[in-house]
Simulated scan of single mutants.
Amino acid sequence: MNTFVISTSSFDTGNNAAVQRLISAGLQPVMNPYGRRLTEDEAAALLKNDVVGMIAGVEPLTARVIQSAKNLKVISRCGTGMDNVDLAAAKSQGITVLNTPEAPAQAVAELTLGFMLAALRRICATDREVRAGDWPRTQGGLLAAQTIGLIGLGHIGRRVARLCQAFEATVITHDPYVKQVQPGVANVSMAQLLESADVISLHTPYSPDLHHLIDAQALARMKPGAIVINTARGGLIDEDALKDALDGGRLSAAALDAFEQEPYQGPLRQYGNLILSSHVGSLAREARQRMELEAAENLLNGLINTGFIHDA
């Protein structure tokens, strides 16, 4: 029997019309049996010869994995990023790769704004001190008084810009691929952004060319007391350099939702002025529902377009 894999650690199949159509067309769903991100070997094992479609999470879909999936026709990413998929290998195998860039955008943008407010007003640190019996009178900063530098002005970056403008913050961006920016936003050089922004937030896909985009040199160019936020992808920030910048007092705070190795177990967990979350940017209930619906619809339409499933 032909099957399709759902590799995300959680997925509501019962309330997804596209999944039900796939089942009605004779395809059997195969769920992630581990309840976590798959390893490369686990992904390869799951994509057996009878698998024709996949709703993918963030597991490494390397050339080896893709080449071993002999009958795979469509990969539908439940999310925005495509950096975990070897797109060249997929193309060489004739596999269609789709994603859901709009569905998680608002959720990630709102988490980013939450990080900004928490870092500026030191909400997490104050919470810990009050629970410990202290009563700190900590002075924070206003978002309205900051220059926000957004690296990347795609689906998520544009929403973050609008949210920040609603707080009356100044917004600048660096995105060489955007020809026209929204009113009130200046598209500047990377050097100007690093040197001018009080809060720097990453909203760019990961690629080998952007590995450690924020490195020791970039951190050294930032304003003393700047805040760095990453709700995009691990690997964009050199975590060792970030640790050094926090140690040296170059940064006043940082917030990370993505790490080079996940689950993260590194030394940054010890820093009180660093806010950490477990790659939950898209995990707002409404956004997750939309992501799952769109991912399943993409898989269904992809299989229809390949002629594997006949449109009713």
Results as ranks from 00 to 15, higher is better:
P176D: 13
R162F: 11
A186D: 15
G149C: 05
H211W: 14
L120N: 13
A107Y: 01
L153K: 04
P208G: 12
R158E: 12
A226D: 07
V171I: 06
G225Q: 08
I123F: 04
T112P: 03
D175C: 06
A132C: 02
R158T: 10
A125C: 11
G154H: 07
M116N: 08
L142P: 03
R221V: 07
G157I: 06
Y177W: 13
S189T: 03
H212R: 13
E168T: 07
C124V: 13
R121L: 02
V108L: 01
Y206Q: 02
A169E: 03
A145E: 14
V188C: 08
Q139A: 14
V188E: 11
L193N: 02
R131A: 09
H174E: 04
I229D: 00
A119N: 13
S201I: 04
H211V: 08
I123E: 02
G184L: 10
T204R: 10
T138C: 12
T173Q: 02
D175L: 06
R159C: 04
D134F: 14
V185K: 04
P136R: 09
G157R: 06
Q146E: 13
I172M: 02
G225P: 04
F167D: 03
G149A: 06
S196T: 14
A144R: 14
R128W: 14
S196P: 00
T173L: 02
I172D: 01
A220C: 05
Q180V: 10
I148H: 07
A191H: 15
K179L: 12
H155Q: 10
Q180L: 12
I151W: 02
A218D: 01
L111Q: 00
A119Y: 07
T138Y: 14
Q139I: 15
I227S: 00
Q192G: 05
D134N: 15
G157L: 08
S207R: 13
V181K: 03
H174F: 12
L202A: 00
G184A: 10
T147P: 05
V171N: 01
M222C: 11
L213Y: 06
I200L: 11
E129M: 14
G149D: 06
